[in-house]
């Protein structure tokens, strides 16, 4: 049976399971936070710092999921296209991705929010575009490593058709590396939005976010108000990174 989470050497990973437990706990706590804020009425400024941070978590986590999935899909699509379209297109697409990865694209997020109005859609699109080149690079590297595996050479030597190789070997083995590469978009999206929010150029006003709360607390000089969103953001980033890491395949299925 294939285990869902693996360690770096293919062992079942406790770190991945711990990350999922932390993320599930955080999501649940953020979902029930309105009930903790003095009954059913949500008054964020009246709530205690932890409850306020949990309320902000709803905005941060749901945005990270939305923008991360968008960025992950863009990046994975980019990497798959580069691998599938032949050498020339591969070289062009991947050299573009490499050059973009070397630039501080995250700076585009607050810039776009400030210059283009800062709607959720624009913010999500900017975050996805900022995240996609790195995911494309990872996807391409994973697919290249997979294409060099001996079992594919053996399958070709055994006379299997390209369609059969694709169906029986390539797609089942590529699923997990692609999922792992795409999952790395989630912590990157969360970090990008939090950075923009910290500068006051993140999610628009009715939606709270950990970055915006941390930035406000830093400007007001309130350490108690800073501690809860900063801690929850740090834990979420760790859990999302550990989750993405645990999805990386140990040994492909031949």
């Amino acid at each position: 049976m294939m285990t869902l989470f693996t360690g770096s050497e293919g062992r079942p990973g406790g770190r991945g399971a711990a990350a999922v437990a932390v993320l599930a706990g955080l999501a649940l706590a953020c979902a029930v936070a309105p009930l903790m804020a003095d009954g059913a009425v949500v008054r964020r400024h009246d709530a205690d710092p932890l409850v306020a941070a949990l309320l902000d978590g709803r905005g941060s986590l749901s945005f990270a999921l939305f923008a991360g999935l968008l960025g992950g899909a863009l990046g994975v699509g980019w990497g798959v296209l580069a691998t599938a379209l032949g050498r020339r297109a591969e070289r062009r697409l991947m050299s573009t991705a490499t050059r973009l990865t070397a630039l501080p694209l995250v700076l585009l997020v607050p810039l776009a929010a400030g210059l283009l109005g800062g709607g959720v859609g624009i913010l999500a699109l900017t975050v996805a575009l900022a995240v996609a080149p790195a995911i494309a690079g990872l996807t391409h590297a994973e697919l290249n490593a997979l294409m060099r595996r001996e079992f594919l050479t053996a399958a070709r030597a055994a006379g299997l058709s390209e369609g059969a190789i694709l169906r029986r070997h390539l797609i089942p083995n590529a699923r997990r590396p692609l999922l792992a590469a795409g999952a790395l978009a989630l912590p990157r999206a969360l970090a990008a939005e939090s950075f923009a929010g910290l500068l006051g150029l993140g999610l628009p006003a009715p939606l709270g976010s950990w970055g915006a709360s941390a930035g406000l607390a830093a400007r007001l000089g309130d350490p108690v108000a800073l501690a809860a969103p900063a801690l929850l953001l740090a834990v979420s980033l760790w859990a999302l990174c550990a989750f993405a890491d645990s999805l990386r395949p140990g040994h492909p299925r031949p």
Partner: peptide
């Protein structure tokens, strides 16, 4: 766990 911008917020504080 410790992105630079979060440390920057702590430093600003």
């Amino acid at each position: 766990l410790i992105p630079g911008f979060l440390l920057a917020a702590a430093a600003a504080l």
